[in-house]
């Protein structure tokens, strides 16, 4: 199953469907979930929450606790309405790190003593990844960059995040069109036999790489205007001005929703610890 999906993905790298699909999924993930509860939370609180979820599970070996953490982050991931593709990558990531060991040992009739640690490890990896998915793809990009800046991340990084979200649709479209040029005018090897398939794959990888030659030049043309416009619009002036940072960050407000979110999380985790000690 896994292999099949992989194969299909690779075969259609150049396929309009998959590039288009990819673009759609990335856009959906980036812009499609700005009206969720998670997206409206205070980024500073979410970042603290993330730190907890990403660090603490590594130090704890209690199944109930880990399970509770996992369920919590799974719930927030659902609430953040993360795109399917991101979840797929998540699944692939967990699988490649520990999941496959888990399944293999199940297959060879591993007993509880071998499965248990693996289950724990898988839970830890999964919790950590899901927490990062919730925060980084569930949060509105601008709020995320403001939150990072509040914690003292360099201004350049928060600019990069916002700019990346702005430029991505344009870049994707341009890249797609260049690939389409190759598709319309190129002549890929036939993919009937196994050797043909390998050659076809190699051809596709080559085309993707060659596409960066026109893409580099076209993007260079664009970035000149962008940087001039940034200058006019005071980007460099703001980067060294403390007042600007203050004004920008003054839009951050922790409200009732944030408190609620925090309280529920704490309650849940506390409950889990209690249950685990009672059992």
């Amino acid at each position: 199953m896994e292999g099949k999906t992989k194969k299909r993905l690779s075969e259609s790298i150049l396929d309009k469907f998959s590039i288009d699909f990819l673009r759609n999924q990335v856009l959906k993930n980036a812009y499609g979930n700005d009206d969720t509860v998670i997206a409206r939370l205070d980024p500073r609180i979410l970042l603290v929450w993330y730190l907890f979820m990403a660090i603490v599970p590594w130090f704890v070996d209690d199944l109930w606790f880990l399970l509770a953490c996992f369920i919590l982050v799974a719930a927030t991931t659902v609430m953040a309405r993360v795109a399917g593709l991101v979840l797929f990558i998540f699944a692939l990531g967990v699988f490649s790190q520990t999941g496959y060991l888990f399944i293999v040992s199940l297959f060879f009739g591993g007993n509880a003593s071998t499965i248990f640690p693996l289950l724990m490890l898988t839970l830890k990896v999964a919790t950590c990844s899901l927490a990062s998915i919730t925060v980084f793809s569930g949060l509105d990009p601008d709020r995320l960059s403001n939150g990072l800046q509040w914690y003292g991340c360099p201004e350049r990084l928060s600019f990069s995040i916002s700019y990346a979200y702005r430029i991505l649709p344009m870049l994707m479209e341009e890249f797609q069109n260049i690939l389409l040029s190759y598709r319309l005018r190129g002549n890929p090897p036939s993919r009937e036999t196994l050797r043909g398939k390998i050659r076809y794959l190699a051809y596709q990888v080559k085309v993707v790489m060659l596409s960066f030659y026109p893409l580099m030049l076209n993007t260079a043309k664009r970035s000149r205007t962008t940087v001039e416009a940034l200058e006019i619009r005071g980007y460099r002036y703001a980067a060294v001005n403390k007042a600007v940072k203050k004004i920008r960050l003054s839009s951050l407000r922790a409200g009732a929703n944030d408190m609620m979110f925090l309280a529920v999380s704490v309650f849940w985790i506390c409950g889990a610890v209690l249950v685990s000690t009672l059992i």
Partner: peptide
Amino acid sequence: TGELVFSEIMLGQFGG
């Protein structure tokens, strides 16, 4: 930065 922003943050694959 590009790697960090596009693939780690945008896709939520940030590994701390």
